[in-house]
Simulated assay, not measured.
Amino acid sequence: MLPTSGTAALEGLYREANTLPPAGTKGDGDKKVKVGARDVAIWLTAVEYAREHPDETVYFVSENHKDFTKGGAGYPAPMDRDVADLGERFVHLTNLAELLETLAPRVQVDAADARGLLEQHTAWFANRNRRIWAINHTPFEIRTRDGETTTAQAWMLPDDVRVQLLDLRDIEAYRLGANSWIVATARWEFVGLAIGKTLVQGACTLKTRILFPTQSGDEHRPRIIKSYVELPAEDASAVDWPPLMRSAEYMQRVLQNAEAEGRKPTRVEVLLSALMAFPLLKQSAGIELSQYPAYQPLELKHRLPLSSGTVEHEQPEDKRLDEE
């Protein structure tokens, strides 16, 4: 951000009063008015910076061809005198596409190499989405293990959601200074235990436009340019479904997650874990799970723990929940 100096501001008023470029007039006949003090201030701010920093190149970018011209073919007075001593250090461009081509020329990249580079950032992408899931509970569509499409409210165990890159398209690569960056459209797959009308294993995909480096290091991390809406996985049979755990194992995972966050599990978390037996048994029908421990539904012998912030006079409600 370049602050405009008092000198540039005063010169802007002077040139507007005298209709000196890049200031001028607007309108016709009696409605003609003098304008352009701001254009002069913008122009001279860039010129002053170039003069004060002789070791740098200044790129002036504007689609305002009427006032600033397109550059290159010569400027009207007094604009020509403004840049006469700057030479090639003052580059005038007319749009951001020209700037990109000038500062970041395209380079060739192999599609397989680009995919391999992005797959190295899968853990980063997974952690980013887990943070989003923690604060955003917008419903999303999933494909269940038996092929049905349903709406999920959230992931039951976000840390256990498997994230993998499905495909990479529209790959472009640019060189910016000494580094190269790739921009591409990536489609990711999420598979995990989702909370809907019941607890159900589900899979969905997310398309993102992503910028990522061809270098490694903390200073070279990907950037999400745009994210689209989650869509159900196209084919349930093509999903590599993880094995179903016993409800007791899910309950233990819920307790561990709550402990790691320094809190007690909420009643909702405990209930969802305890009541998952039927939907998971239904999903496991016809699936070979002989290599895994036998399914053992969890039996609660004690009253559900109070969630953090629950006061003692709410205990009768807990009793009603136990009975239900």
Rank of each mutant, 00 (worst) to 15 (best):
L281T: 03
E219M: 07
E56K: 15
W155L: 04
F68G: 13
R115M: 11
L10T: 07
G286P: 13
K70C: 10
L231R: 09
A186C: 09
R145G: 01
S308Q: 10
R223N: 04
E317Y: 14
S5P: 02
R131E: 12
Q252F: 10
I142Y: 13
N129K: 14
A203C: 04
Y75A: 05
Q256A: 11
L13T: 15
G24H: 06
R162H: 10
A194I: 07
L2W: 11
A152P: 00
R263N: 02
Q291M: 03
L304S: 11
S237F: 05
L272I: 07
I132Q: 13
H92C: 02
G177D: 12
W181G: 01
P279Q: 03
A8I: 12
R81Y: 01
T4F: 04
V35N: 04
A285C: 02
W124I: 05
V47K: 07
K197V: 05
K31P: 00
Q108K: 14
K66E: 02
Y295M: 05
R223P: 00
D85A: 06
T25D: 09
A9K: 13
D110T: 03
T150D: 00
P242I: 08
Y292P: 03
V163G: 05
R145K: 01
H137L: 12
L193Y: 03
D322H: 08
L20S: 02
Q201R: 13
G177F: 03
E323R: 12
V268E: 05
L271N: 08
A50H: 05
D85I: 00
P243M: 09
T205D: 10
G27I: 08
T57S: 09
A114P: 08
G27T: 05
E63I: 05
D218V: 08
P76Y: 04
A277D: 14
Q296A: 11
G36N: 09
T151Q: 08
F212R: 04
A258Q: 02
H137S: 12
L321C: 03
V183A: 10
P242Y: 03
L168Q: 08
I182G: 01
L321Q: 03
L281W: 13
E312C: 02
Y228G: 07
E172D: 03
P213R: 00
V270I: 15
R15F: 01
D28C: 01
Q108F: 03
R143T: 15
G202N: 10
V268W: 11
D30H: 06
A46T: 02
V91C: 03
R187Q: 05
L10M: 06
V33G: 01
P54T: 11
L280E: 08
L44D: 11
S216Y: 04
L211I: 04
G286K: 07
M156R: 14
S216E: 08
A233P: 05
F68H: 15
H121C: 06
G87Y: 02
D159A: 12
R143D: 00
Q201S: 07
W241F: 10
T205M: 05
T310S: 11
P78Y: 09
G74E: 08
R128M: 12
T102H: 12
A8G: 09
P232E: 07
S308I: 00
P21C: 12
N179S: 13
A194T: 15
A184L: 11
L103T: 03
L199G: 06
V33T: 13
D55F: 11
E324I: 14
L96D: 00
R130W: 01
G36R: 06
I135C: 01
T214Q: 12
